[in-house]
Simulated assay, not measured.
Amino acid sequence: MNQPVAIILAGGRATRMGGGDKGLLRLGDTTLLAHVIERIQPQVASAALNANGNPARLTQFGLPVLADPIEGFVGPLAGVLAGLDWAAERGADSVVSVAADTPFFPCDLVPRLLLAAEGMQAPLALVATPDGRHPTFGLWPVSLRDDLRAALAGGLRKVVQWTDAHEAQTAMFDGAGDPFFNVNTPEDLVRAQAIWDAQK
Rank of each mutant, 00 (worst) to 15 (best):
W86N: 02
W86I: 09
W86T: 04
W86S: 02
A87C: 11
A88I: 07
A88S: 15
A88Q: 14
R90H: 13
G91C: 06
A92G: 08
A92T: 07
D93P: 04
D93G: 15
S94Q: 15
S94T: 15
S94R: 11
V95A: 10
V95I: 14
V95E: 07
V96Q: 08
S97V: 08
S97D: 07
S97Y: 06
S97L: 09
S97A: 14
V98S: 09
A100M: 08
A100H: 10
T102N: 05
P103Y: 00
F104A: 04
F104W: 06
F104C: 05
F104K: 03
F105M: 13
F105V: 09
F105K: 00
F105N: 00
P106A: 09
D108Q: 02
D108S: 01
V110D: 01
V110W: 00
P111T: 10
R112G: 07
L113F: 12
L113R: 03
L115K: 13
A117L: 02
A117I: 01
A117K: 00
A117W: 00
A117R: 00
A117M: 04
A117T: 05
E118L: 06
E118Q: 14
E118V: 01
E118N: 05
E118S: 12
E118M: 02
G119H: 02
G119C: 01
M120E: 14
A122I: 10
A122T: 13
P123F: 13
P123C: 15
P123A: 14
L124F: 09
L124G: 01
L126W: 06
L126A: 10
L126T: 10
V127K: 04
V127H: 09
A128I: 08
A128C: 11
T129M: 06
T129Q: 03
P130Y: 14
D131H: 12
D131Y: 12
G132F: 12
G132R: 08
G132C: 10
R133E: 09
P135C: 12
P135D: 13
T136N: 12
F137N: 04
F137K: 05
G138D: 08
G138M: 09
L139M: 10
L139W: 02
L139P: 00
L139N: 03
W140R: 10
P141N: 12
V142S: 10
V142T: 15
V142A: 13
S143H: 12
L144C: 09
L144R: 12
L144N: 05
L144M: 14
L144E: 12
R145W: 11
R145P: 03
D146S: 15
D146G: 03
D146H: 15
D147E: 15
L148M: 14
A150H: 14
A150R: 15
A151V: 04
L152H: 03
L152K: 02
L152Y: 08
L152T: 01
A153S: 13
A153K: 13
G154Y: 04
G154K: 05
G154H: 06
G154P: 07
G155H: 10
G155P: 05
L156D: 04
R157V: 08
R157S: 11
K158Q: 11
K158I: 07
K158S: 06
K158P: 00
K158D: 10
K158A: 10
V159A: 06
V159W: 00
V159F: 08
V160Q: 09
V160A: 08
Q161L: 03
W162R: 02
D164R: 04
A165N: 06
A165V: 03
H166A: 07
E167K: 13
E167N: 14
A168G: 12
